[in-house]
């Protein structure tokens, strides 16, 4: 009985270690040449306009994607590396564009976000590739993906005073710090003090 439990624990531990190793490998693979000599992530387009009939773009998944802690770590990095200064708490935007809605200028897929952070972008996004290891950038990608609110299915967005649209705002970050901010909302405040504590 006891021995069985011990074995189970050992297996679980080993399984976890293996999974971690696999994730690390996948992360490295994104920038490693395949046998054909192509770097998959270099084939990820910034534009989705595709002249002629080129092969479909490669599917690059976030190697940290299935780690529930990745977004949490990403949030810590987002704050510590001053991403928060430009993109604001919960990605509201300011000096840099908002990340809280998914209309990302340079693409919202994990590979697009990875490249935007790694390479920087010409309108003022710094290139972090030389400073941050890939695993950290992937954690940031996980966080950015988790704070963007999913589209509501409409083609466009209405902004009006009466009736109030948008109807909802997010709870301010000085009260709640979470990688899942859209779980905390309240009615749109029109510049008045928020009620939530």
């Amino acid at each position: 009985m006891k021995r069985g439990l011990l074995l189970l624990l050992v297996l679980l531990g080993a399984g976890g270690a293996l999974a971690q190793q696999a994730r690390r490998n996948a992360a490295e693979n994104a920038l490693t040449p395949t046998r054909a000599g192509a770097y998959p992530i270099l084939s990820v387009p910034v534009s989705h306009l595709r002249p002629g009939q080129p092969p479909p773009p490669p599917q690059v998944t976030n190697p940290a994607g299935d780690d529930p802690q990745a977004a949490q770590r990403g949030m810590r990095y987002f704050i510590s590396f001053n991403c928060v200064g430009c993109h604001a708490p919960n990605g509201g935007g300011g000096m840099g564009p908002s990340l809280s809605d998914v209309k990302s200028i340079y693409g919202a897929e994990p590979a697009n976000l990875f490249l935007s952070i790694y390479q920087g972008r010409p309108n003022g996004m710094p290139a972090w590739g030389g400073s941050l290891p890939e695993s950290v950038i992937w954690d940031l990608v996980a966080y950015v993906r988790s704070i963007g609110q999913k589209p509501d299915g409409n083609f466009g967005q209405t902004i009006s005073r009466t009736p109030a649209s948008p109807q909802k705002q997010q709870t301010p970050a000085e009260f709640v710090q979470t990688a899942n901010p859209w779980a905390f909302t309240e009615p749109f405040g029109n510049g008045k003090k928020p009620d939530a504590k």
Partner: peptide, 16 residues
Amino acid sequence: AAVDPRVRNGALGFTG
């Protein structure tokens, strides 16, 4: 600019 009016802490807090 691309600032989300729904997130009060944006633009160094001025969005609120």
